[in-house]
Each structure stands twice: as structure tokens, then as C-alpha cells.
Design a protein around this nucleic acid. Structure first.
Lengths: 347, 347
DNA sequence: CGCCTCCATGTAATCGATTGCAGTGCGGTT
DNA sequence: AACCGCACTGCAATCGATTACATGGAGGCG
């Protein structure tokens, strides 16, 4: 028993395939009686359109591709959830790809998505420069929106948060807490996130007259292990800073863990901040002060931009207006890693 | 400039589309000279096969669908990574779906995958009974392998770990550590993982003569919050057990966190164990003793079974042999939540 | 020299859904 | 009564790749 085709439905209903298609898609005039017959036949056979045949004919797949640097980073998975949610509202599906933080794999994924004829692509480029050619080449062929991270040398829409503003909030908060010097632990400056966040960090530190020892800028990757390693180095060098600002929560979790292991009190001796507000942030010991990204809104905005780009492409050929850059304002979430804990949370 | 089709390549090379197809797919005899011409033409035009047209014609998509209960559970994302890796070796792609722990959404996802004509499906059913009909209906139409979790009333292949044996190891370890009573914190018994693990827990506890107070079996869901809630209840009731065995690491992280918040020493007063060995397990305070699942092997085995099922389907029609049940042996990873920490790790 | 074989290649059908165009029939208009 | 327009329906082309079958030509053998 193979899956029924439109032809079988047509035969059973005693009409042509054209009519069946018209009934099922709701396009074109069909008399009420025939509609009923067709619907019943379709129902009885359990007919479902074949998305492949439809895609071939229509040139649309109702599928959006998404490429993220790493599916094991909780921030990205929650972003994916939000995007999937937003797409669901438009009756579109998500095809998710993991770039494993490798621009080469990323380029292959993008090519695959183009080949698969997705309707649009949402990408968070893993590299600030090397991701450029592939992203641009892809954007030349399909509607594309960059999310969270972006890559230089491209002209595509982008949605994310204002990292500079976020860092201003973070630094002001640390200063209020009495910090007079700060360290920065991030990934290498090869992606826009660390780059922007570091720029925001440095600028505000200067404004506030907070010292930043060049040796207190440690760049590795987005991982707990790197946070631990960097902290060990910081502490080994002596003269630790009053605060450690991290480019994401994973790093911050590593930092707090290492502080604990070395007997350094957080926030008493050193304040620590993260970025992203992943679910695990509140599990740190102490719970992390971090920057919350409005994921739902980022996702919704990205989907909206994608739809707009697709529409523009259909009507005015090549009438690409200037690309949209939507920078949302993130929120600082204050927890124990920068403020004395509530009594009940002490161990 | 639209994407080139096989017809354009054919025209440029001065041959028919059939010949182009034969050259590019390597099937059928084509003279060396023509081969060169075709290859060059394809190269110059940047031709790439259209997977949609190919899928329509061949009835194969070279894509495998995967449905997991929750993409935000680190265990599943790492399982996904492993599966994607294994599939990549066979030149297949992965279409990932999140069921949001809802059998209804899960059923829709499965239906979508069938409609999309994937070559096979890997699913970790979110519910031990309600997932049944959809999984069985899907398995009737496509090769399907259940992974990690499984659902009753179905006859499909399955790959996972031997939860009973794992729990035996856990319990023996706790007993060695001096535990004479134990609590169990899991999700509701509506999925096979908790069910099996609880069964293994209870059986071995009996064997060892360890007491299990009925009030010390707490069932909620797979989340940190539930672990915290359950612990609060356990402690509030007084007379806490010597050990708390958790059905997964997220729960265990909640448990240890709550213990810390309530000033209960782990492992001094209470030993705690997790399950899955997610990356965050070692970040607990103290780091979690847990059961490591051999993800790579599970994934590889699942892919192998899927390929075998697909092959069987092609040749012998309906000759489905008995379904394979592959239970791999997991490993106990001992960390500080059941053993006194190394001096350096003390806070 | 004639016939047979086999290789290389082209022609056209096929997968399933959609849609432009054409045809049919009915009701209304002059 | 002849004609027009409209609503409904069917025919057949189309999307792009694959492949069964047909064809043409070259070479071998008697």
C-alpha cells in the first residue's frame, strides 16, 4: 500500500487531478458538490500532499534553514527553539544545521541549504571574517538574515542585541559594586560577539576610569574549560582584578568554578559576570549575574525580516534596499556572582 | 541568473540530458571524450543536482529524520551530534525535530517526516505509552529505530543502554560508600528511561537490603527545578536518606543545588548520583557521580540498524525479521557527589 | 561482402502536484 | 433565436533528474 497520490483521489472522486488540486489548495472555483466528493475521497484514502512534488513544481519548500556555530551551546539551542516557534506560526519548518564552529563546515551547510532550495536562511556565522564569502554567496541567492553574530564584508539583514550597551550596563553595575579593575575572558576575537562585547567592555572601563591590565584580557573559546583555564592563569599571575567579565555564560561558569576551587570568594573578592542568561546561569555557585538576550523577540524579528526579504525578492527584482540592522536592548540580570547572596543561599 | 539545470549542461556540452545524468552519476557507459566535455560544462556552469527533483524521481531523499523529546536537554543535543556524525559518514543528512515532550507534537513531527519522505527515522519517544500509536504507524511506513527511550506496544528496533545494569552499578557504589537507605528522584513513570532506571534502582535496593521509604520516591520531570523542588520536600519531611539517586543529570544538579542551599553536605550527609554524564555534570557542586552513556556507539548502532532495515525493505518485501534490541553497557563515572572531594576542590 | 553484436547516445516516459488554456453548458440579454 | 459571459471542469505542459527502450554506427566473423 503506497501513499495515495492526487490521481487516486481524482479517480475515486470521479474528477480530474486538476480539480482535486483546486479543491485541496482552495484556489479556483469548484462547485460545492464536487468539493464534498473530493474531500471525502481524500479523507478516505488518507491523502497527504507530497511536499517534494509540490516543492519541485512551486519552487518553494516552506522550509527555512538555520546554521548555528554549535548545537551544544545552550544559548543557541534556546535560540533555535524560539526560531522554530516563530516559524511554526507561519506554517514553515526549520532545517537545523550545526557548523561545529568551523567556517568550512559552515560553508558546506550553507551550500546544502541552497541546494535544498530552502525559502530562506538564518545564520549565526561562526567566524568574524572567514565566514564572509560563504555567507555573502548564499545571501546573493537566497533571503538571508544573520542572527546574534554577524560577519564583516557582507550586506545582509541582521538581528541581535546591542552588545556595547549591554556591556555599559555590566560595567556600571560592577563599578557600583566597588570594582576598580576588571579582567575580560572571551573567545578569540574572531567572531563578532566577543569582538563587540570586548569593545564595549574596554570603552566603558575607560570611561569609568577602571584599570584593565593587558594581561587581564584572556581570549580562548566559548567553553567552561576555557573559563577555568583562564582563571587559573589570572590567579597564578597574582594581583587579581576586582571583577571578571566573561563573553558568555559557559566561560563564566568555568570562571566561578575555578574561583571556588582556588578558594577565591565570589563576589567578595572578585565579581563575575556572564552573558546570554542560559538556564544554567542560575546554577552557578554563586548564581551568575548575566545579560539576558530577548530570544523570542530576536527570533520573531528574524522571521519577519526573512519574510519581508522573500516578498521583496518576488516583486521588485534586485530592488534590495539597504540591509536592516536590528539591535535589541538586552537586560542585565543581577544574581549572586556580583552581589552578596541572600542568607539562605550560603553554603 | 537561475541555478543551472541538467538541460543547460547538456546543451553546453552538446549532448543529451540523459548523457549528462549518466556522466554525473557514474552509471552507464559513456566515452571518455564526452565525459570530459560534460564535466567541464557542469563545472563552468557551477551545476549542482537539485535534490528535490532527484528525490521525486528516485523516491529517496538521503535524509534521515530524528525526533527527540527536548532539544534543550544537553543529553539529547549531544546524542544528536553523534547521530549527525554517524550519518555524515554515509552521506546522509539529518532533519532534526523537537517534540517539546508532548506526544501530540511528536506525532505531528513524525507525520511530517513521513510526508517529507525521509529514508528513515530515529526517535526517542517522549512518552512510554501515548507515543505508541504514532511510532507504530510511522514504523509501518518507514524504517524506524528507537533510541535511548522506547515505547511499549511497538515492534521496532531499539538501541540504548542497559538501565538495569547501570543502576546495579550505581547502587553497589552507593552501598560501598556506606549508604543504607536511598531516595529516587525521576520524571513521572511515563517514559521508559525513568521506568527502567527506577526498576533497576528498586530491584538492587532490595537485593542489597537498602531501605526505600515510599515517600522517598519523587516523580516529576527532567529538569533542574524539579530536582530542587523534590529535594526541598525530602528535607522538609525530615529523616533524609543516605543517598539520592536521580534519573538524569539535570535533576541531580537541582538536587545538589538544593542540598547546598539547605546546608546539607554532599556527599558527607547525602550521596547524590545522576545519569547521562552531560558536560555540565562535572560542574555541579560537588561534581556529579553519574552514568556515562556511550553516545557515539549508540548513534553508530542506530544508523547501522536503519541502513539494514532500509536494505531489508528493498529486497524482501515485508520480510521483517524480529526487531533488534541493542542494549549497550554504560559506565559509572565516580566524582565528588559520592566520594569525599580531593582537597583542592573544597570551597 | 553481408550479417550480427555491442557500445554509445538520444528519445521520451516517469515521479506528483500545479496551473494556463480551452472547452462545455447554463443563464441572461437584445 | 442568436449570442455573450461566466462558472466550472478537464487536458496537458511544467518543474528537473533519471532510466527503459530505441537507434545508429562500428567492428568482428564467416
Amino acid at each position: 500500500m503506497q501513499r495515495p497520490t492526487i490521481a487516486q483521489v481524482a479517480q475515486r472522486a470521479g474528477v480530474s487531478t486538476a480539480t482535486v488540486s483546486r479543491v485541496l489548495s482552495g484556489r479556483g472555483p469548484v462547485s460545492a458538490g464536487v468539493q464534498r466528493k473530493v474531500r471525502r475521497a481524500a479523507e478516505e484514502l488518507g491523502y497527504q500532499v507530497d511536499p517534494i512534488a509540490r516543492a519541485l513544481r512551486n519552487g518553494r519548500t516552506d522550509t527555512v534553514g538555520m546554521v548555528v556555530p554549535s548545537i551544544s551551546n545552550p544559548f543557541f539551542t534556546s535560540l533555535v527553539e524560539s526560531v522554530e516557534h516563530a516559524l511554526g506560526r507561519e506554517g514553515k519548518e526549520l532545517f537545523l544545521c550545526d557548523a561545529r564552529s568551523d567556517p568550512e563546515i559552515e560553508a558546506r551547510r550553507l551550500a546544502t541549504l541552497v541546494a535544498r532550495n530552502v525559502d530562506g536562511i538564518i545564520v549565526s556565522p561562526c567566524h568574524g571574517t572567514e565566514s564572509g564569502p560563504a555567507v555573502q554567496a548564499t545571501a546573493d541567492r537566497l533571503p538571508l538574515v544573520q542572527l546574534d553574530r554577524f560577519v564583516g564584508g557582507t550586506s545582509t539583514d541582521w538581528v541581535g542585541v546591542d552588545d556595547i550597551a549591554a556591556m555599559r550596563q555590566v560595567m556600571d553595575h560592577l563599578r557600583e559594586g566597588g570594582a576598580r579593575s576588571a579582567a575580560f575572558v572571551g573567545s578569540l576575537l574572531t567572531n563578532s560577539s566577543t569582538e563587540q562585547r570586548f569593545a564595549g567592555f574596554r570603552r566603558r572601563a575607560e570611561d569609568l576610569g577602571m584599570g584593565v591590565d593587558p594581561d587581564h584580557v584572556l581570549l580562548g573559546d566559548y567553553s567552561v574549560v576555557w573559563g577555568e583555564t583562564a582563571t587559573a592563569r589570572l590567579l597564578a599571575a597574582g594581583d587579581p582584578p576586582d571583577a571578571i567579565v566573561c563573553a558568555d555564560d559557559l566561560i563564566a561558569l568555568g570562571v566561578t568554578r575555578a574561583c571556588r576551587a582556588h578558594g577565591v570568594d565570589v563576589p567578595g573578592t572578585v565579581q563575575v559576570t556572564g552573558y546570554d542568561n542560559i538556564d544554567f546561569a542560575r546554577l552557578g555557585e554563586p548564581a551568575l549575574t548575566t545579560v539576558d538576550q530577548p530570544r523570542e523577540r530576536i527570533a520573531a524579528e528574524a522571521v519577519r525580516l526573512l519574510a519581508a526579504a522573500a516578498a521583496a525578492r518576488d516583486s521588485a527584482a534586485g530592488g534590495r534596499g539597504p540591509s536592516a540592522h536590528v539591535a535589541l536592548l538586552p537586560t542585565l540580570v543581577v544574581r549572586e556572582s556580583t552581589r552578596a547572596a541572600a542568607p539562605a543561599s550560603r553554603s
